[in-house]
Amino acid sequence: MFGNIGWAEMMVLLVAALVILGPERLPGAVMWVTKSLRQVRDYASGATKQLKDELGPEFDDLRKPLSELNQLRGMTPRTMITKHILDGDDSIFTTFEKPNGATKRPSLEKPQSTNAGERPPIDPDAT
């Protein structure tokens, strides 16, 4: 639930709570929050257990499309092409990669002339 909150954020919240609530009310507030979170977690696990009991084996049939949907949610265009068109063979992508991980892109510009005295062509419609 709070997996994306680091220790620095927790310390900031603790200091803010200490300033707002004061040292005499902070322990009671912490106990109330932990008790509330534990109760919400128990309600959620109880609801899941109740659904499993009522639906029986159909519960797994209900979870299967949801897990497939979660897999689709995490797919990028590259993984979709690799999985469905290339049957998991991503060697076509690795042949175009440089050693540092950047991809090679073919240049669309014409190579510059090496003659020093030669002037580049001018397009009168572009100027």
Rank of each mutant, 00 (worst) to 15 (best):
A116G: 03
S36M: 04
G6F: 09
E9C: 02
G22N: 06
Q50M: 06
F2L: 12
W32H: 06
R38D: 11
T79P: 00
F59E: 02
L55F: 13
R63W: 07
S107V: 14
V15K: 14
F96L: 15
G46F: 00
M75D: 04
L66D: 09
L86T: 01
M10A: 08
L108E: 12
D123N: 15
S36E: 13
D53N: 09
K35H: 06
L66R: 13
K35Q: 11
L69M: 14
K64W: 02
E109V: 04
G56D: 00
D42N: 11
L62E: 03
M80H: 13
L86W: 05
A8P: 00
L55W: 11
T79V: 10
K49D: 01
N4E: 12
M10G: 01
T34P: 00
G74W: 04
S113G: 15
E24L: 15
T76M: 04
W32I: 03
Q112P: 00
D42S: 11
A102D: 15
L21R: 05
D53C: 03
A8C: 01
P120Y: 03
L21M: 10
K52F: 00
T127K: 08
P120V: 05
M75Q: 14
P111S: 10
T48M: 12
R41Q: 09
S67W: 11
M80F: 11
R38G: 12
F93N: 02
E109W: 02
R38S: 15
L86Q: 02
P111D: 06
I20Q: 10
V33Y: 14
L72M: 14
R41K: 11
G28Y: 13
G117W: 08
P27Y: 09
S91Y: 05
S36V: 03
T95K: 10
S91C: 08
E109R: 11
P77S: 02
P65N: 07
K104M: 10
S45F: 03
I5K: 09
Q50G: 01
G6N: 15
L26N: 03
G22M: 06
L55N: 03
F93T: 00
A17S: 15
D125M: 05
R105M: 08
P120E: 08
E9N: 06
T48F: 06
L21T: 02
T48Y: 06
L18A: 11
S67F: 10
S36Y: 07
A44H: 08
R38N: 12
P106V: 05
G6W: 11
K104V: 04
N100V: 06
L55K: 10
K64A: 06
P27G: 08
S36L: 09
L26P: 01
T127Y: 09
K49C: 01
L55Q: 08
Y43S: 00
G28P: 02
T76R: 04
G117T: 12
K52I: 01
W7R: 12
G88K: 03
V19T: 09
G46A: 08
P106S: 04
G22Q: 01
E24T: 14
T95R: 09
I81T: 10
S91T: 15
D60T: 14
W7D: 13
E68A: 05
I85L: 15
R119Y: 01
D90K: 00
T127S: 06
A29K: 02
E97Q: 15
H84M: 02
R119D: 09
E9T: 13
